[in-house]
Amino acid sequence: MPKRTVTVIGTGRAAVTPDVVRLDLRVGHDAADVASALSGASKGIAAVGTVVRSQGIADADIRTLDATVTQRYDNTGTAVGFTAQQRLGVTVRRLEAVGSVLESAAAEVGNALLVDQVRLDVADRSEGLARARDAAYAEARTKAEQYAALSGSELGEVLGVTEAGATPLPAARAMGLAAREMAASMPVEGGDLEITASVTVTWELR
């Protein structure tokens, strides 16, 4: 005779205090040919990397995200050249420094620099995720105990545990704005962020 079981899903949340800001910076360059477009974009993003380092950002907190080249057309549909873009990911570990990082980068390459993303995050999510998992499992057990009681049973041993996944911190905000415009009004308030975990647990019913 198969075992009687109850399977429930528990969700847990944990508030964390953000301690880093993640920036996606993009530099574009227009040119008549691919090589010139790539060269211009590369020089621009290299200059941004240099000036960002001068603001105290460590090499480990700077990484190339991607590079693209697209053909440009005028309003008649005639090809007129190419646009190359390169993106740089920068992790700023002092929230109050975000404005100065953007301002210095914009001063170096002007409006060629766009900000695609500004995202509050935590450098180490492990403690918050552990608390969210604890809360998720506790909720699952409370539900299972209720269902067991309603069916005139008691919970037995745990037969299976599956994590449905941890929800990351809030999704990035796509900006697409000139860095110079953003830097002028870029006070970053940390507040609280939330990490969510979900777990599916199966108990034997006795």
Rank of each mutant, 00 (worst) to 15 (best):
V8A: 01
I9M: 03
I9Q: 09
G10Y: 06
G10R: 11
T11V: 15
T11E: 15
G12K: 09
R13W: 10
A14R: 12
A15W: 14
A15H: 15
V16I: 14
P18I: 14
P18H: 15
V20K: 12
V21Y: 12
R22T: 07
D24C: 08
L25I: 05
L25N: 05
R26S: 08
V27P: 04
G28A: 13
G28D: 10
D30N: 13
V34G: 05
A35I: 13
A37N: 13
L38K: 15
S39G: 12
A41K: 04
A41F: 08
S42I: 03
G44S: 05
G44P: 02
I45H: 04
A46L: 02
A46V: 00
A46C: 00
A46D: 06
V48D: 07
V51D: 05
V52Y: 07
R53F: 02
S54Y: 03
Q55S: 11
Q55A: 06
G56P: 00
G56L: 00
I57W: 06
I57R: 05
A58K: 14
D59Y: 06
D59G: 01
A60I: 09
D61C: 08
I62E: 10
R63I: 00
T64W: 03
L65V: 13
L65P: 02
L65K: 09
V69K: 13
Q71C: 08
Q71P: 07
Q71S: 15
R72N: 06
Y73K: 02
N75A: 04
T76S: 04
G77L: 01
G77H: 02
G77A: 00
G81L: 04
G81C: 10
T83E: 14
T83P: 00
R87N: 09
L88M: 08
G89D: 12
G89V: 05
G89Y: 06
G89H: 05
V90E: 03
T91E: 11
V92C: 01
R93V: 10
R93C: 08
L95Y: 13
E96A: 14
A97G: 03
A97M: 10
V98L: 12
G99I: 01
G99D: 07
S100Y: 00
V101C: 00
L102D: 07
S104Q: 05
A105S: 09
A105P: 01
A106M: 02
A106R: 02
A106H: 04
A107P: 00
A107W: 01
V109I: 10
V109D: 06
G110W: 06
L113E: 11
L113S: 07
L113H: 05
D116V: 04
Q117S: 14
V118A: 11
V118Y: 02
L120V: 05
L120N: 09
D121R: 13
V122A: 10
A123Q: 13
A123N: 12
A123D: 15
D124K: 09
E127W: 11
